[in-house]
Each structure stands twice: as structure tokens, then as C-alpha cells.
Amino acid sequence: MKPAIDIDLDEIMERYPGRPESLIFLMQDVQAAFSYISPEALTLVCDYTGVPMSQAYAVATFYQSFSLEPRGEHEIKVCLGTACHLKGSQRIVDELSRRLGVDAGQTTEDLKYTLETVNCLGACALAPVVVADEDYLANVTAKKLNKLLKELSQDIEERP
């Protein structure tokens, strides 16, 4: 995810009419811009659409694609579907968890990495599969994990 700052929340609000129907559109846009929906952003969305906070919170916690905590710059998703599971994806999760210092579903303290598990990516022939941001990695091994983590951390250090 390309880090972005100085995103104007009000500009996002103005993309949609101020009605309850705009709730999910706005939440998606906020999620895309900030990688999460902060309490301030959620309050603003509620003010703008007229949806009560309890309902907006229910929607935000219902959908997996909304996050209420900041996500890392890089999201690493490990597939735990049947084929990948048989090919040892759980060990991949454990290894990544050890290396990054967080459990699956959590983000590192410095907000650099988020580790997730997913149920099936539909790329079973490539099992075990790991998705790093938008890139699908096939037949992942310990060596490939090393390479991935090295690339990701270099990306973070070198970004202009």
C-alpha cells in the first residue's frame, strides 16, 4: 500500500450524497484511503449520512474488508484453504508469525506489516499460496519467505 498522508476526509465525504444509502460507499473509500476506519472518520461518516453510530459500527464490524485498526504498509495473506493446508500452509503462518512478532490477524507495532489468513484464494494448483499486497506467490517455501521479507523491508526503507 502506498502510504498517503494529508488525505482530506471532507473531500471523501463530498463524493457521495449525505444520505444513509451512502454509508458503505463512504466506508469503502475511507478504508481505501487510510487502510482503516478511525473513530474520527467513522464519526464524520455518521454525521454526514445521518446513520447512528451503533449501526455504522455494526456494519464496520460485520464486513471483513473494513478494519477498525490501522493496517500495515504491507499486507501478507496466507491461504489456509484445503489444498494449501495439505501442503503445509499452517507452518508458513507460524514462521511468518515468529519472524514478524505478531499473530495472524494482527499488525506489527510499527505499522509495517499485517499478517492475515484467508480461507481460499482459488489458486489451488499453486499451493501453498501467499499474497503479499497484490502479488500472488506460488509454491512458497522458507527460502521464498526470506526473499519476500527482504524485498518488503527494502521497499519500506527505500521509498522516496
Binding site: I5, F34, Y36, P70, L111, I156, R159
Partner: peptide, 12 residues
């Protein structure tokens, strides 16, 4: 109190 993007910016 920084978002992910702001943390990266802070580092840079």
C-alpha cells in the same frame, strides 16, 4: 497517533 501512511512519512 499516526496512521500507517503517516508513520512511513515520519520515517522518511
Amino acid at each position: 497517533p499516526l496512521s500507517t501512511g503517516e508513520r512511513a512519512a515520519s520515517r522518511q
